[in-house]
Amino acid sequence: MAQNGILQSSLAKKYAMAVTGLFLCLFLVGHLAGNLQLLTAASDGGRQFNEYAKFMTTFPAVKVLSYLTYFSVLFHLVDGVVLSLQNRKARPVRYAMERASTNAGWSSRNMMLLGTIVLVFLVTHMQNFWWQMHFGEVAMIDYDGESVKDLYTVVAAFFNPEMNRWALPAIGLYLLGQFALGFHLWHGFSSGFQSVGLRHPRYTNIISCLGKAFSVLVPVLFSAIVVFMYITQA
């Protein structure tokens, strides 16, 4: 009969990949919505952005979501590595000649590579901002009697070539990360639906188009914000 632990079967691992991946897509939407405030943040000295950051780090429901996000990232990562190792083991001898490009898209064949680049980016990204916000020394700012961490200044300074001599390489890495994310999503978004069996002659095309739009739009907007920050301060 069927194996007991749900994660033991190959399909269950794929469900987990799909569910965590699609959840992280939701996270991306939220994160992007927050970051878009940076485009107008200079006008109010970053107040709206800082208040939003405070809300995001303190409001209980958001807290729950954020732990879910950490969990999803870790699970997606570990699960992905386990799947990849199993896949490698499933073909111990490689082909001398392979023409994989004739039957499958590049991104679908390189999810591990793309995921790894996103991961590297993620680590530096969290070190630069998340760590600063939570454990670093961030100046406090007073809004109507309420003391709030001035994350905006940290962000602005990070992308200011005069205040951070690593700003340009950091932006390079950021863009690379977004690039990888885009390709990761190009396959991952619709793949997630397929993995949980959500496929239908009428809707699959819509999901596929939505996925492609998502995978272009989200990284482009994230990148645009960073480039904007850099250009306006350079």
Binding site: Q8, S10, L83, Q86, N87, A90, R91, G105, S108, S195
Partner: peptide, 15 residues
């Protein structure tokens, strides 16, 4: 599916 896994086939990545 269980038998498929036991045989040592890889996982589907929807390529």
């Amino acid at each position: 599916v269980d038998q498929m896994d036991k045989e040592g086939f890889g996982n589907c990545t929807n390529t």
